[in-house]
């Protein structure tokens, strides 16, 4: 709490003289939870107003390329913000990683997933849900893990693909797939895990899932954009992001 107050003070000083502004931002759907918690904190501290659209990053990219009025993108990957930068649609040097995702193997069935992921080698299940590796970094990471464990070939026939990590979670949470590679942020809140069994995949089995934020060209002169970038790097914000199961 003290940290948050300090942060508020810190943010009040530089921003107050500037006029309060509206900021249109596009936010990756998997960051909805923390974003909803951060929004009022930011608005109260700065007087700016956030107008948020949640969705998948592939859609946002197409929309931004075609003139969508977004001023800032909170992405679920690092590739899309980079791409926007290369396209000249994002402000160079404004990009940074605001959260690092953690991959989990999860099942609603207690005892199915062991603490070492051996369940993948035994293969005693019908469906394993992963996010579409072509579209979602969590999916690509899941494929890497299975390849490193040498089980990808044998599991291929059991894979079902969620459009994104949210749908992958739904496949698993409804029990239609016995297990799934999901994000820790989906099954963890304030130190408590969802029911069932899980394995936190060791970091050496997949490349880091960096989630980047970038200021878009349209938001270059919006004081709220710069304020939000500063806000995302503050200790209080990082603490909230961590409480949702991200690293940072």
């Amino acid at each position: 709490m003290k940290r948050v107050l300090l942060l508020l003070l810190f943010l009040m000083v530089p921003v107050c003289p500037a006029l309060a502004a509206d900021l249109h931002l596009a936010v990756a759907a998997n960051f909805t939870g923390p974003m909803e918690q951060l929004k009022p904190v930011f608005e109260k501290a700065t007087g700016h107003k956030l107008i948020i659209a949640y969705g998948t990053v592939g859609k946002f990219y197409a929309q931004i390329k075609n003139g969508a009025p977004f001023e800032l993108l909170i992405s679920s990957d690092e590739a899309t913000p980079k791409k926007l930068e290369n396209d000249g649609l994002a402000v160079a040097e404004s990009r940074f990683t605001y959260a690092i995702g953690k991959l989990m193997l999860w099942s609603t069935k207690p005892g199915l997933v062991d603490g070492k992921g051996e369940v993948l080698k035994r293969g005693e299940f019908k469906y394993l849900a992963i996010a579409n590796p072509k579209l979602a970094v969590y999916g690509a990471a899941a494929v890497d893990v299975m390849k490193k464990l040498g089980v990808y070939e044998q599991l291929q026939a059991k894979l079902v693909f969620g459009e994104n990590i949210t749908q992958t979670y739904q496949f698993t949470a409804t029990g239609n797939a016995e297990l799934g590679f999901v994000a820790l942020s989906q099954i963890y809140k304030n130190g408590v895990y969802a029911d069932g069994s899980y394995w936190q995949v060791p970091f050496n089995l997949y490349p880091r899932i960096k989630q980047d934020v970038v200021l878009l060209t349209r938001g270059r002169d919006n004081p709220a954009g710069k304020a939000l970038l500063t806000f995302l790097q503050s200790p209080g914000t990082k603490q909230i992001i961590r409480s949702y199961g991200y690293d940072i």
Binding site: T56, G58, K59, Y61, A62, K83, Y127, A129, N132, K134, L135, L159, V160, F161, G162, E163, Q167, Q170, F171, A177
Partner: peptide
């Protein structure tokens, strides 16, 4: 939602096009 995007079993054309779009 129902299909799970499995090639040959549930990956229909609309999903395939969408995958292409989303993968840029």
């Amino acid at each position: 939602m129902i299909g799970g995007n499995i090639p040959g079993a549930t990956r229909v054309a609309s999903v395939q096009i969408y995958d292409h779009v989303e993968a840029l």
